[in-house]
Design a binder for these strands. Structure first.
Lengths: 115, 115
DNA sequence: CATATAGTTAAGTATTGACTTATCTATTTC
DNA sequence: GAAATAGATAAGTCAATACTTAACTATATG
């Protein structure tokens, strides 16, 4: 069990690499084998495996092996953590802007009363 | 000018650190000086400045100096890049699930026809 | 003007990250 | 069952991160 902050660390860290994002983009269109995921990259297989380990460790993907083929897929709830955090920040920030706007309106009304 | 992928690299990288997220959380409630942002942390001032530089370099924050005080704030459009990417992935992924569902329904209808 | 305050720069260290090559293990397929 | 295929593990390299302390520069304030 991982605390919220550590989960965000892993998630954002995993998303910070273009190769890993590309793998997620591929996976968001359907599951794929390791070699299939590796194909677009000019990168050794161990490098690809490390990227996949980062994704899986962050809970962004799942995989199971059948025969000699490992099939990877996106973990449904995966992006929630990240999206929720971003949404919360934006909500807070917009709330603050609303308050500021209300305050400015109030000031303006007072000015009109005084003018 | 930065390409889309490099911008995402910087953004997610910046978000991957708990101290930087905490600073953004603080800033999403209103602007703050450097020392104000530093206060909650048991971290040297240079370390705080480096975190702030990462945030600003990623376009997540803005700052200006007046007198001897530097005031930092959130950059409005900052979280868009990250949020858009996450939304796109989720959209793709859900679209795929919809297609799968449709396909499974189709299969079921055929089965009923054959039953 | 002396001193405290707010921030900045430089330089060094220790850890983590993103790879590499080489080697090795299972599974298919012919 | 020999050879190709799919993936895994080990170990090492190089650069980037996340800090540190020390020293320095402005701007306020008593």
């Amino acid at each position: 069990m991982l605390n919220q902050s550590a989960a965000l660390d892993l998630t954002f860290q995993a998303l910070a690499d273009p190769a890993r994002r590309a793998m997620l983009e591929r996976l968001s269109t359907g599951s794929a084998s390791v070699s299939e995921l590796a194909r677009p990259f000019s990168m050794s297989m161990p490098a690809v495996l490390q990227h996949l380990a980062v994704l899986e460790n962050a809970g962004l993907t799942l995989s199971r092996k059948s025969g000699r083929v490992r099939t990877c897929e996106i973990n449904p709830q995966a992006l929630n953590t990240a999206q929720d955090w971003l949404s919360a920040r934006r909500a807070e920030w917009e709330h603050r802007l609303d308050r500021l706007e209300a305050y400015l309106n109030e000031l303006q009304n007072k000015d009109q009363g005084n003018g």
